[in-house]
Design a protein around this nucleic acid. Structure first.
Lengths: 137, 137
DNA sequence: ATAATCAATGTACTTCCGTTGCATACTTAA
DNA sequence: TTAAGTATGCAACGGAAGTACATTGATTAT
């Protein structure tokens, strides 16, 4: 688990026990997680700590926030090397309306869009909804 | 204002005074509106009525709901002829991080995306964030 | 080693939005 | 005109995000 500590350190986050656990949990899970999910898993820890851990991770470019249309913020680990604090890694997200899970499709990039004059895009968020691989099988 | 009444009737919504007012308000405003916005404008009316009016409009294909990443649902009138109760009109939305307003860019359609095997998309939501026309001028 | 300093965690509370249940007014059809 | 259905109002609930303050824990300098 030294890798996790290194990853956190490299991103300027002190590797506390709690943070390592949360990182580990997110690494094992392949889907985006909500604060509530983490709360349920780490029931003994305080909500606020978990909340702030996610915020810190986000600020330091360890996770990115996903808005999948459920009005609940979800988070997923960034790919190693992704600089989404600086420039967005514009992959898309898929939200399954059957199992209610959201996954990163890191291979599928958001295509460039021509905007009308005067509009300057700095970030993009594309969520497809439908049936995921697991549920369609 | 007979046009509004007709529009509501055609979509199976009884054109009450309140509903006509709300429709009118949304038609005049060019940006997507949140429930809170409407609440502020029609302060004497009850929140629930306004809430349910939006829900009804949405069900009947008069407005569509927009999730611009602010965690607040916004609504905008559908284009006449858009059948988004049935199949999504896949235009994109632009959220200005300066003035915090969200607009429909009905001309800009969401491009088709090739998904990995097993994924079946039924809906798509693309929100670009940045500086809008008004704020960049 | 100890004090001083800064970061991380815990406790409690607040606010905002979405939503629902039930009562009342209004409108339409029998 | 009565009955049925629809729209509105009132009240309350629940979930999620966020904040203020106290406390613990870790790090640095003396």
């Amino acid at each position: 688990m030294k890798e996790i500590e290194k990853r956190l350190n490299d991103n300027g986050v002190r590797p506390t026990a709690m943070r390592i656990l949360i990182y580990k949990y997110m690494a094992e899970k392949e889907i985006a997680v909500a604060l509530t999910d983490i709360e349920n898993v780490f029931a003994k820890a305080d909500r606020t700590t978990l909340y702030r851990t996610l915020k810190t991770f986000e600020q330091k470019g360890i996770v990115h926030q996903i808005d999948d249309g459920t009005h609940i913020s979800k988070f997923a680990l960034c790919e190693p090397g992704c600089n989404c604090e600086l420039e967005q890694d514009l992959h898309l997200h898929f939200h399954c309306t059957n199992c209610d899970e959201t996954v990163c499709l890191t291979e599928q990039k958001i295509p460039h869009i021509n905007l009308p004059d005067g509009y300057v895009a700095e970030d993009a968020n594309l969520v497809l909804k439908g049936i995921c691989e697991k549920c369609s099988g």
